[in-house]
């Protein structure tokens, strides 16, 4: 029992990342009808927003302390981040420590702007081109974005730690009545999961309960009619693209403590997220979220030793295998609407 619970928990953080990226992909596909292969790159850029903020905050000035000497006997140089100079050492250190959560605020405007530029500058011209062209041009864009990041940040993964308060693990088993040490779970992963639930809930509430969301949903159902009613649906769809970019970016920001980002970070997630979208059903938002968590958890169950003994290598292929089976027996995905991209 505790093993099952543990594997479910383990699958949640990966599943949450899949769900967030797949949600953005589906938003873009549902509104603009565009298959965005650059979405993984947006996730990656989000994670590098966290890296950048951490670096910006840690910019230091050097002072020479004549009292102390370093191991060579020279006067010691002390690096003090400017931020500690401005806010005092304690608050300054705390700000640097909390740079990953703070990067959320930093990343939102960047990602939204990037989304706007992408949509207006490139994607707009591809509405009426075949899906293959959209895949290809966004694939090219993904390469370009990756290479730009690689140029400035290098090819190696950059460790970006979580705040000290959230490091370490939580013994969840004890809280719900299991033996101690049966279910140990890193705190930050739990936070990632909760964060993703908040974001997903926020998106759904936004679409459900605001007038703007209502118009967008109407546009997803029948773009032409909404346009004929005198509503500038293109503008709203552009905003939705910005939001989808921000969701991918936030997923990236919060994922940095779990996995150090490098420039190829997004591509691994992109391939899996596409599988997630297809399994969930093209254009279905709840489907994308559900399939994301489902595949994340399935993946973690498949990597249990007991399962691996029966089916060697199953952990490597389970997600693709599920996708193939679902595509063959239920072409429109788990929760896809009838008639949407069934062919």
């Amino acid at each position: 029992m505790d093993a099952i619970l543990l594997q479910t928990l383990n699958g949640l953080d990966k599943g949450a990342a899949y769900a967030l990226i797949a949600l953005g992909l589906t938003l873009i596909f549902g509104t603009l009808g565009v298959v965005n292969f650059a979405h993984g790159a947006l996730f990656m850029i989000g994670s590098f927003c966290a890296v950048t903020l951490q670096r910006l905050l840690s910019i230091s000035y050097t002072t020479i302390d004549p009292e102390k000497t370093d191991f060579l006997g020279n006067p010691a140089k002390i690096e003090t981040p400017y931020i500690e100079g401005w806010f005092g050492p304690e608050i300054g250190a705390a700000i640097i420590d909390w740079s990953v959560p703070l990067a959320i605020i930093f990343a939102i405007p960047i990602m939204v702007t990037l989304g706007f530029i992408m949509e207006r500058g490139l994607i707009k011209h591809f509405y009426n081109r075949p899906h293959a062209d959209q895949i290809l041009v966004t694939f090219g864009l993904a390469i370009v974005l990756q290479e730009i990041i690689k140029y400035y940040f290098g090819a190696n993964p950059i460790p970006t730690p979580a705040p000290t308060a959230f490091k370490g693990s939580l013994d969840i088993g004890v809280m719900i009545g299991f033996d101690p040490n049966a279910i140990i779970y890193p705190i930050w992963r739990l936070i990632y999961f909760v964060f993703s639930l908040i974001v997903i809930g926020g998106i759904f509430a936004f679409l459900r309960f605001t007038t703007f969301g209502m118009v967008v949903r109407a546009g997803m159902a029948d773009r032409e009619t909404v346009g004929l009613l005198g509503i500038n649906i293109d503008k709203r769809f552009t905003i939705m693209f910005g939001i989808a970019a921000a969701v991918a970016g936030l997923a990236g920001v919060m994922y940095t403590p779990i996995n150090s980002p490098n420039y190829e970070f997004g591509m691994e997630f992109l391939v899996l997220s596409f599988v997630v979208v297809v399994v969930g059903g093209m254009g279905s938002l709840p489907g994308a979220v559900m399939a994301g968590f489902l595949l994340g958890i399935l993946g973690s169950f498949a990597s249990m030793n007991e399962v691996k003994q029966i089916f060697p290598g199953i952990d490597q292929i389970i997600i693709y295998l599920v996708a193939i089976i679902i595509l063959l027996v239920r072409p429109r995905g788990l929760m896809g609407r009838k008639g949407v991209m069934e062919e």
Binding site: V275, P312, Q316, I317, A323, M341, E343
Partner: peptide
């Protein structure tokens, strides 16, 4: 035989899935 049952983007995803499966298996169990 399996992938061509679908077309368009689904075909792309299916072939991608098969290729990734082969790649992962070649790295691990095989």
């Amino acid at each position: 035989y399996i992938s061509l049952r679908r077309s368009g983007i689904y075909f792309s995803i299916l072939t991608l899935a098969f290729a990734q499966m082969s790649f992962n298996l070649a790295y691990s169990v095989l």
